[in-house]
Design a binder for these strands. Structure first.
Lengths: 337, 337
DNA sequence: TTGTAAGCGTTATCAC
DNA sequence: GTGATAACGCTTACAA
């Protein structure tokens, strides 16, 4: 491929001049500009971004680490969609790195983006601890934001939802509707989100004097298939329930399928509640009530903070922002008519 | 950040030696190796990939261009999931560039990946013509694969489905079931996929001597909302139909909603057919029959070809592969029981 | 307004 | 085994 040097020779100028023409920095006479552009045209020259980035010490890219397990479904695409859009509106590009299936792989993905000298990094952790995330944020000069976790030492570097409170609110809504036998399908319990939602369920029951019954809790792993399996587990236990809360919509959908399969009508005999991890309004079943989790706002706020930091905001100062941002705006949505 | 030079000084050796230790190329005594590793440890050194890539003239990355409009939904995440997974299994990373909303932006995204010196590129075009894609493939030294288009001059660089044949098959299945009044919701007609599916519908009718009625065709733009709107259009025309084919599942889902809303039961009064652009089995409505489009195989085959090319396969030779690959394996799926 | 030359942080080819 | 040193392709003072 043609290099800048070749362009320079062809135009009868030096590399520096070509660089000036391209970057718009420094004065170049119109005539030489014209000659340079002509030379670029003729040689099919394209700047080598690797070289440019190395020279300027910045890459104009934003790195995003997401775990493999999050890849499926609309939640992820929504996240990615806005991340990419906002990044590009900023004249930067998004680079995606896969956190795969373990803490170690998550670490490697982050390290890769760091090694690539991304200008900033967004992490949606799955396995790494809050402590380790805090360390990472502190030990690196580039701005880093963490999604869906509450950082302790660098709270302004995280944006998250209060899953526990939301879960509790959802269950309380069911209680208010008169339900007392409320079954619950957990998410993976090695994820904080899964634990928090379960915990919110327990809190709600406790607050209303409803005894917790283990027979009404079944484990799932976020997917529709595990939601369906959880229903089987629940039914096999012969414990009656008039409402079912699944820790995300995917499982709720699987659960509804399975209930109907077993001749139980939804929502006539059992009301089903999910958490809209998945901006999937178009696909949700008419029978499903869902809590909206604001992925969109989450990623938008994140990128905005990053942009602020990149623009020279003193992001090491916790005062840079109002502090941590907890998105509490989740609202209960009623079943589609 | 610590550089290789600092590590070298600290270990009392030259840059070259540090480089050898890191790359494993060339002989280094165990003692110096130890000293180097110690120095790396102490200084928190991390190699600068920009510099490395510049020096080696390869970036160990694979670029993917997808249009913004494809971002929503499971189809895309499925694509991305496998692309990322396979790329990383190869020890490379995936870089995503957004094709946005126009041919020009699509061009820019491709150009960016080229400028970044990605080792190989996958393009899922939306606006660019086959001719232009063919040119791009030919004019660049790095391997490029195009999804969902049939390239004329570089057929082995494309992987696609025969949407027309599939659409025709789907409609013929309805005809075989006794339907004669079959309505059709198109996709965006500025996309080849949309045109082909419509064309398959027309072919099927023609082949069975069923007259084409414009009143039974409504335009959509792939989204659930436009599918619903199309149903309104059809109903307003007062043309009766016993079956409805939507050009993708998203629209089919919107259509089903709307039909039910209007008191028309599915599939009792109207059978609905979609194309599973969207490996979304878990979400599709029980009432929907859908044609499976093998995204997964498509992207897998694509990456495999790329890997082959990168490993030195003579990819400019059309004989490198069996030639073009047309995925015909689409199967009709029956409504969920 | 333009050219020279010194980086940027690696790798790779020589010698020694 | 190891160390200079020249690339890699660009940016950016500093001169001219």
């Amino acid at each position: 491929m043609a290099t800048m040097l070749e362009v320079a020779k062809r135009a009868g100028v030096s590399k520096a001049t070509v660089s000036r023409v391209l970057s718009g920095n420094g004065y170049v006479s119109q005539e030489t500009k014209d000659r340079v552009f002509k030379a670029i045209e003729e040689s099919g020259y394209r700047p080598n971004l690797l070289a440019r980035n190395l020279a300027t010490q910045k890459s104009q890219t934003l790195g995003l680490v997401v775990t493999n397990t999050l890849y499926h479904g609309t939640y992820f695409s929504e996240l990615l969609f806005h991340a990419a859009r906002m990044t590009e509106d900023q004249g930067r590009r998004l680079i995606l790195a896969d956190g795969k299936h373990s803490a170690q792989e998550e670490r490697e993905a982050i390290q890769y983006l760091l090694d690539l000298r991304c200008d900033a990094i967004v992490i949606y952790p799955r396995f790494l601890s809050v402590d380790e995330m805090d360390d990472i944020v502190q030990n690196h000069s580039q701005p880093i934001m963490v999604l869906n976790r509450r950082l302790r030492r660098n709270s302004s570097h995280s944006v998250f939802c209060d899953h526990k409170a939301t879960s509790r609110a959802a269950v309380e809504q069911l209680i208010a509707l008169g339900h007392r036998d409320i079954a619950f399908i957990t998410g993976s319990l090695d994820s904080p989100t899964g634990v928090e939602r379960l915990s919110g369920y327990k809190d709600a029951l406790a607050a209303h004097g409803i005894p917790l019954r283990d027979a009404l809790i079944a484990q799932g792993k976020w997917t529709p298939a595990t939601g369906a399996a959880a229903v089987d587990t629940l039914l096999a236990r012969d414990a009656e329930f008039s409402a079912l809360v699944a820790s995300n919509d995917d499982m709720a959908i699987g659960a509804i399928r399975q209930l109907q399969q077993q001749g139980i009508s939804v929502p006539q005999q059992v009301s089903v509640f999910g958490f809209d991890d998945i901006a999937l309004a178009p696909y949700t079943l008419p029978a499903l009530s869902s809590v909206r989790i604001p992925v969109t706002e989450m990623i938008k706020e994140t990128i905005n903070r990053l942009i602020f930091m990149l623009d020279g905001g003193d992001f090491k100062q916790q005062q840079a922002f109002q502090g941590e941002l907890i998105l509490r705006e989740s609202v209960l949505r009623h079943p589609h008519p």
